[in-house]
């Protein structure tokens, strides 16, 4: 099913419908522009000369267009941004796989299984959402240092395979609870194991929430800067975000043009990921709806 299948409800006459849609589109386009103005400014900032960047330029049109910033940004550091993109991509893909797998397994336990101490663990799981990470940073650093993981990607990837981000567990719990319980019961009557119910029934029916989790997981890992900032010392292992931040030194000279240029480029992969998964999300949900 696609979007068209959810066409305007019956009862709207064609004329009303046209007027309606013109109205909706003009509102949406106007709102889109407001939403996008800062981003458009960023694109325009990326092609401005450095001395045209500040000093109150509200206009989106640069005084002169130069692609210099893309070059100086990409090649400006001793390692090119290409490396950072590959690093970010690898870390984000690995983290996303870990997050979706581990969180769905855990959420399945919380949403569909019964065991002693469940409520206790659920409360603790939510509790982990509440502690600001700034105060666990140093104990965690010491822990990873002892494991000899510092200066590798391991601290950024391995924890995701142990579902340390409770957001995804909670999200999936909420959605798994919405799946009809009769399905499990029927499967159990047929002698299916918990594992088969998870794998054959819950996961296929949960494509939308899995897609949602994958989108967020990928994007948030891509955008994370505090973890990489602390754990990655060698510039060859840097992620895009750390590369971006390396362009800015607030105490002295900064290459703002390069920052904007590389920021624009850094949005492209996550935007594509979003476009890809949102199809999955929409189609997946439609399927779920039909089965009910």
């Amino acid at each position: 099913m696609n979007d068209a299948a959810h066409a305007a409800p019956p009862g709207d006459t064609p004329e009303r419908s046209i007027l309606h849609s013109v109205l909706i589109h003009s509102v949406l386009i106007a709102v889109s522009f407001v939403m996008l103005y800062p981003l458009l400014w960023m694109v325009s900032g990326s092609v401005r000369p450095a001395d045209d960047m500040f000093g109150g330029q509200t206009s989106l049109i640069p005084s002169q267009v130069t692609l210099q910033a893309y070059k100086s940004g990409w090649f400006g550091l001793q390692v090119s941004f290409g490396t950072f993109f590959l690093n970010s991509l690898a870390i984000s893909v690995l983290a996303t796989i870990g997050n979706v797998l581990a969180a769905s397994v855990t959420a399945f336990a919380f949403a569909r299984l019964e065991f002693v101490g469940k409520s206790f663990w659920f409360a603790l799981m939510l509790g982990t959402l509440m502690l600001p990470y700034h105060v666990t940073l140093i104990p965690q650093y010491v822990l990873f240092l002892k494991l000899d993981w510092v200066n590798t990607w391991l601290p950024l990837v391995v924890p995701k395979y142990f579902a340390v981000d409770a957001f995804f567990i909670f999200l999936m719990v909420q959605f798994f609870r919405g799946l009809p319980r009769e399905l499990d019961e029927a499967a159990m009557m047929d002698g299916c194991s918990a594992w088969r119910i998870y794998w054959k029934i819950v996961l296929p029916l949960s494509l939308p929430v899995l897609a949602t989790a994958a989108i967020f997981s990928f994007i948030w890992t891509w955008e994370d800067f505090f973890g990489p900032l602390i754990y990655l010392g060698d510039i060859h292992t840097y992620t895009v975000q750390i590369g971006l931040r390396s362009l800015i030194d607030s105490s002295g000279t900064s290459d703002w043009g390069a920052l904007f240029a590389m920021s624009v480029l850094s949005l492209i992969p996550i935007f594509l990921i979003f476009l890809f998964f949102q199809r999955l999300l929409i189609e997946g949900i439609a399927t779920t709806g039909m089965k009910r």
Binding site: L229, I230, D234, R245, I248, S250, S254
Partner: peptide, 23 residues
């Protein structure tokens, strides 16, 4: 000699963490 650098505002938390970790 291995080198590392960061912008001013990233430098201090990164340094403090390494010092606290005796590293």
């Amino acid at each position: 000699a291995k080198t590392e650098f960061a912008g001013w505002s990233d430098y201090w938390p990164r340094l403090a963490t390494r010092v606290a970790g005796r590293n």
